[in-house]
Design a protein around this nucleic acid. Structure first.
Length: 594
RNA sequence: GGGGGUGUAGCUCAGUUGGUUAGAGCACGUGCCUGUCACGCACGGGGUCGAGGGUUCGAGUCCCUUCACUCCCGCCA
């Protein structure tokens, strides 16, 4: 028998009536009646009400113990009377009559209460994370995370995947995010980099003939944080498969995700066969490559309308002549909404840094006309054309944005969310997955006007590999895909380029010489030259999956020991200074800040 | 690097047009209370109003600077 407990605090029920038992845990809550004291004892498994009265000599000592003291209780399980049963806790049918107690761990005055559902300042929560983690909601989130990871492991093994570890200390690579660097003592002046993802390693695993690999892999990227993006480190379900095409990867993920999300959430999955949307379609219809498909609003291009003679909206017409586009969002049956609704949206758009959203509603007297600030600029014929293009009807409202294509995409993407929220159009009880496919291989860097890889440089280009038009690189599409759920990007993946000659060619377009590639990606390019199988994979973000399942908006709510927005660990005091001896060994001098 | 929000007791917050000794709930302390489960009642301790400067007879409140946290943009193949 354990010295500390015979049962956990979530275990006792009516069948234990009369038993002599031992419990250990934290004092969650006291209710002191002066001559009668209730103590809710808490551990990982639950709560048990313990009771003592004045007839016991230790009553006065127990009465004085502060909340969160760790104690061991010896006592008897009593059946509660009918009126005193607590249906809210699993042990609510019984209580423990205390005979003896032992204090196992004292507490200082608490910097934040554990017994409370209130929200607390992030700073104090992170500094005292061990207290914060005792609180019910986040405690359950972390347990959920553990279960999700176990579930994924099991499923992946059932699919025939092998789990491997890959190095944490590796080399810096020129593409992608900023690296975290680790100085080398034995090779002074040189640095390791922490992996941004095990990308090259997993491809090497395929070349090594292991066929199907996965890992719950830590990834390190030195970029600024967001609510759904931890600074520094995060976890991916990293996987790679040999002898596969895009649809084979989709098949595994769809099976896994449907099972996973059904198992851990009551929300419905909108389409179990996830819709495939091309990148260009997504940008046109949703203004984003991570559309929230729960949102029924769509974006329509109306640029052509503003080239018509019978449309007199001169500001937009002038902009269209100089290459701008006009796109719209239609809201259904919003004609009667108060002016404040429309102006609110317009003002919001201006706050987002755009020139605002023009709007008018469609009305019909003897003919169709536009009502609202810019409605008068449109002829009946032009309005009919708009209705045809957008499926708008009388009573609907047309919101318009005009500007450079990428600016319009951005503001309408945000407006789509904003308007849907205002009109309460988003079903919160649904998971809506989709695949975004057919990403372009390259894009133009706006600043340098140079061609660069738009996503993963190791992706396989689409089409006949012997006939790729390298002179028109911006039109080369890649077998590169993202999976999106409820507007959250869960992952990118790709079918990889396993042909060295083709890879040199593709890197050349992005400005890397053969020797650049040989040097920067030596491990991989070398390996691909010795018989590499066609392969591909994907790497869904674990943290974001758990966020969706836990219904949390912030990644720190599903991360045990997160850093704050400035990438500091307030509990462990990281990052911190190191001794001069340590620096000397590494051959590093710290420059003083001016 | 840029923009927004927040900062008052250990914690969550209120604080009027600039005006007496800055309040409430929880927590903590003392006392009363034998069936509570957010127990109740009474009393009490606890404040660099984030920091610095300024305006004023007088600043939690107005102005300037600055710091911290947070959300967003940039960034994140």
């Amino acid at each position: 028998m354990s010295k500390y407990r015979t049962h956990t605090c979530g275990e006792l029920n009516i069948t234990h009536k009369g038993n002599e038992i031992i419990l250990s845990g934290w004092i969650n809550k006291k209710r002191d009646h002066g001559n009668l004291l209730f103590i809710d004892l808490r551990d990982n498994y639950g709560l048990t009400q313990c009771v003592i009265d004045k007839s016991n000599k230790i009553f006065n000592d127990l009465e004085k113990l502060p909340l969160e003291t760790v104690i061991k209780i010896e006592g008897t399980v009593l059946e509660r009377t009918k009126e005193t049963i607590n249906k809210n806790i699993i042990t609510g049918q019984i209580e423990v009559k205390i005979k003896k107690i032992f204090v196992l761990g004292k507490t200082k005055e608490l910097p934040l209460p554990v017994f409370s559902d209130q929200e607390y300042a992030e700073e104090i929560r992170l500094k005292y994370r061990f207290l914060d983690l005792r609180r019910k909601k986040i405690h359950q989130n972390i347990i959920l995370r553990s279960k999700v990871i176990s579930f994924i492991r099991l499923e992946m093994q059932n699919f025939g995947f092998l789990e491997f570890q890959t190095p944490i200390l590796t080399s810096s690579s020129p593409e992608g995010a900023r690296d975290f660097l680790v100085p080398s003592r034995l090779n002074q002046g040189k640095f390791y980099a922490l992996p941004q993802a095990p990308q090259q390693f997993k491809q090497l695993i395929m070349v090594s003939g292991f066929d199907k690999y996965f890992q719950i892999a830590p990834c390190f990227r030195d970029e600024d944080a967001r609510a759904d993006r931890s600074p520094g480190e995060f976890y991916q379900l990293d996987l790679e498969m040999s002898f596969v095409e895009q649809e084979d990867v989709f098949n595994v993920i769809e099976k896994l995700f449907v099972k996973l999300f059904k198992n851990f959430s009551k929300k419905k999955i909108l389409d179990e066969k996830f819709p495939r949307i091309s990148y260009s379609d997504a940008m046109l219809r949703y203004g984003s490559d991570k559309p929230d498909l729960r949102n029924p609003l769509q974006i329509y291009d109306l640029t052509e309308i503003f080239k018509r003679e019978d449309v007199k909206f001169d500001i937009f017409k002038k902009l269209v002549k100089s290459g701008s586009v006009v796109r719209s969002i239609i809201t259904k049956k919003t004609k009667e909404k108060p002016r404040s609704f429309f102006d609110g949206i317009d003002n919001w758009a201006k706050e987002q840094g755009s020139s605002g959203l023009a709007y008018f509603s469609l009305e019909k007297n003897d003919k169709i006309l536009g009502k609202g600030p810019v409605g008068k600029f449109f002829s009946e014929e032009s309005l009919k054309e708009i209705m045809k293009k957008t499926n708008a009807a009388v009573g609907d409202t047309v919101f318009l944005s005009c500007g450079k294509k990428n600016e319009v995409e951005k503001i309408l993407s945000q407006a789509r969310t904003k308007i849907a929220e205002e009109l309460n159009l988003i079903d919160k009880n649904v998971f809506s997955f989709c695949w975004i496919i057919d990403y372009p291989m390259y894009e133009m860097d706006e600043l340098s006007k140079k061609i660069k890889f738009s996503h993963n440089p190791f992706s396989m280009p689409q089409g006949d590999l012997n006939n790729i038009n390298f002179l028109d690189p911006l039109n080369i599409k890649a077998y590169q895909y993202d999976i999106v759920c409820n507007g959250i990007e869960l992952s990118s993946g790709a079918i990889r380029n396993h042909i060295p000659e083709l890879m040199y060619k593709l890197f050349e377009i992005a400005g890397y010489s053969k020797s650049d590639v040989d040097q920067k990606f030596s491990g991989m390019i070398n390996a691909l030259s010795y018989g590499a199988p066609p392969h591909g994979g994907i790497a869904p973000g674990i943290d974001r999956i758990v966020m969706l399942l836990a219904d949390e908006k912030n990644i720190r709510e599903v991360t045990m020991f997160p850093m704050n927005q400035n990438a500091q660990d307030l509990m462990m005091n990281a990052p911190s200074k190191v001794s001069d001896e340590q620096l000397k060994e590494l051959g590093i001098n710290i420059k003083k800040k001016n």
